[in-house]
Amino acid sequence: MAYLAQYNYWVVVVLMMIGLYVVVSHGNLVKKLMGLSIFQTSVFILYISMGKVDGGTAPILEEGISVYSNPLPHVLILTAIVVGVATMALGLALVVRIKEAYGSIEEGDIQEKDKQSC
């Protein structure tokens, strides 16, 4: 049970590893960005999990409720999600331009073309 209690954090580790693996080893640039988004999401899960209080409710004040989950991680992650999508948009725009310039969005092809042009 003690291990199960930290279940959320275990999942964070697994997701982070999956995301990072995609970023490092996949050659496709869009896929890399997908991996990056999985990687970032795992951090969001870490933050949100730490804000949870057993038996608590959403941090919106209401009569008759006394236990609320911690609102601060929520605020931080709201920020981080928006930052994540901003990065994603910029990355995708770069990918579009790379496709136009190199004719490919595979890391291997691009590196080869760079070598040839040198």
């Binding site: 869009v30 999401t41 969001f44 949870k52 989950s69 999600i81 994603m88 995708l92 579009v96 496709k99």
Partner: peptide
């Protein structure tokens, strides 16, 4: 996890906008 505001954002930003952007990129690449 009681993070309703975050859930709202993630659903609209992550599942909505990010996916659309990804699809339009894929259309090009």
């Amino acid at each position: 996890m009681d993070a309703v505001d975050v859930a709202f954002t993630e659903a609209s930003v992550g599942a909505g906008i990010a996916t659309i952007l990804m699809l339009s990129t894929l259309k090009l690449t």
